[in-house]
Design a protein around this nucleic acid. Structure first.
Length: 461
RNA sequence: UCCCCGGUAGCUCAGCUGGCAGAGCAAGCGGCUGUUAACCGCUGGGUCGUAGGUUCGAGUCCUACCCGGGGAGCCA
């Protein structure tokens, strides 16, 4: 391994020899000089390599280099006389490691994101996707830092599960039974008892129920891993496979949960603003004007907090004609969420205490018995980025709620058992990692946040 | 899944009420003494998403399907 472009560009002065390996973004050839813009993905900017005819391989190698070639360059770090960069590398040796064919698809111009999705094996070499992947990485590191600094234990929740986590969404089935002729029970149903796990199994839609197990032993845990939804959702905010972050805290109520969510978002945004400054500057210039100011504002100012009841009153008094009229008792629609966060307060907003009928069975029943201790964090453009709640820890209340939702106690036996032995108030939330990165970067489509997006009808790459 | 829009050269797109398929960039060749998405000249490059239909004649009109995008629903 040679030196990284990042380490060379971050030097304060010229001098010294380096070896660089990477891919050419552009190659400009003059009669007496060639300029090679070399990028190795270690940072946003490429480094300018200057090659002169004194090089033995100037005619045989350098003159034929083009966009996309993999090269190894040895040279001296010198001050650049040209504009646009302070340092450059004067090559003493240039080696072509891997050439490109004539139909190399990435060109020295702007490509559409739709097209780049069809060449996901090459798109990480573009400015935009390199930046997205670096931001993703720093955001993931910041998430671990945030929880680890606060004493949370990373819990590895399972990917294959028999429970259907409160019906959070359509699930992908995991089976070894032959698709064309599965074994049947006497009444003709598919006999999953003969399947690999001895029961019908699925990919997880949430690690929350397992996180509750962890919290009721280790006090503070979080999950961070892949999650799967088989919904036929075709939007700029949905993936069939995405990463979810789910902290869970024992001896914690909804207020503590909201505090954690706000601190969490501010910490990760600040980490990316600081750790990916050049990538973020690119998003500001080329992807979403104003994104830096928006993010800094989120970091600096307290989130607006409203009860569902107050939110409905604001919407009713807004004088706005909504496609779906609001009234107490119905869930907030995308248009309502957008009005609240984009127009009413112009920053993130936390809505809490939703009607019990529209929320999951495991949420804590408030004293008014009409609402549950749920909270959603809504942000401009994305909508719901965090959804959380205080969990119902009282056995009898939980049994009633299960029955109200038509769910069987047998299937949730261990979840109920947790309430029989050493139950304690606890709360947590779930956050879609790609939605967080989407919010950070201002990218319009979540399919350009996942390096290898899985959506209905497409899992190539 | 529903509604709307789109699919023309490697890429971005133009192509009018049906009448010889185009441009810029990329690629190849040549030129240019330090460029910044370099620039200048020349050359090659097409099953107009697929299958039917209407017509003397379809990139253009009709039908079905496939693929992509935007919005909605579902949700994170």
């Amino acid at each position: 391994m040679g030196d990284s472009v990042r380490s060379v560009l971050s030097r304060s002065e010229a001098g010294g020899s380096v070896t660089l390996e990477g891919w050419l973004r552009t190659a400009r050839h003059g009669k007496e000089v060639s300029f090679l813009a070399l990028s190795d993905g270690s940072c946003f900017a490429p480094i300018q390599v200057v090659a002169n005819p004194e090089l033995d391989e100037f005619e045989s190698v350098v003159r034929s280099l083009g966009n996309g070639c993999a090269v190894r360059v040895e040279g001296e770090v010198v001050a650049s006389p040209g504009k646009g960069q302070s340092l450059e590398v004067h090559a003493t040796r240039v080696e072509l490691v891997g050439g490109v064919e004539d139909d190399y698809p990435l060109q020295k111009k702007r490509h559409g994101f739709e097209y780049l999705r069809t060449i996901a094996h090459l798109r990480p070499r573009t400015n935009t996707f390199g930046a997205v992947l670096r931001v993703r990485n720093v955001a993931a590191r910041a998430i671990h830092e945030f929880f680890q600094e606060r004493g949370f234990v990373w819990l590895h929740s399972p990917i294959v599960t028999l429970s259907d986590a409160e019906g959070a969404g359509q699930m992908f089935r995991v089976t070894q039974l032959p698709a064309d002729d599965p074994p049947r029970t006497e009444d003709g149903a598919v006999d999953f008892g003969q399947d690999f796990f001895g029961a019908e199994a699925h990919l997880t839609v949430s690690g929350q129920l397992e996180a509750e197990i962890g919290a009721l032993a280790l006090s503070k845990v979080y999950t961070f891993g892949p999650t799967f939804r088989a919904e036929d959702s075709n939007t700029s905010r949905h993936l069939a496979e995405f990463w979810m972050v789910e902290p869970e805290m024992a001896f914690c109520d909804l207020a503590g949960d909201m505090d954690l969510a706000e601190e969490f978002l501010k910490h990760t945004l600040a980490a990316v603003l600081e750790g990916c400054a050049d990538d973020m500057e690119f998003f500001e210039q080329r992807v979403s004007k104003g994104i830096l100011e928006t993010l800094q504002h989120v970091v600096d100012s307290p989130f607006e907090r409203l009860s569902y009841t107050e939110a409905v009153e604001i919407l009713e008094k807004s004088g706005r004609e909504f496609e779906y009229p609001v009234r107490w008792g119905v869930d907030l629609q995308s248009e309502h969420e957008r009005y609240l966060t984009e127009e009413h307060v112009k920053r993130p907003i936390v809505v809490r205490d939703y009607p019990r009928e529209i929320k999951a069975f495991y949420m804590y029943l408030n004293d008014d018995e009409k609402t549950v201790g749920a909270m959603d964090v809504l942000v401009p453009k994305i909508g719901e980025i965090v959804g959380g709640s205080q969990r119902e820890h009282r056995l009898e209340v939980l049994r009633t709620r299960l029955a109200d939702h038509g769910l069987s106690e047998e299937q949730y036996w261990w979840y109920l058992d947790l309430r029989r032995h050493g139950s304690a108030p606890h709360a947590g939330f779930g956050l879609g990692f790609e939605r967080l990165v989407q919010f950070m970067t201002g990218m319009a489509n979540i399919r350009d946040i996942a390096p290898f997006p899985r959506v209905p009808g497409n899992a190539e790459f």
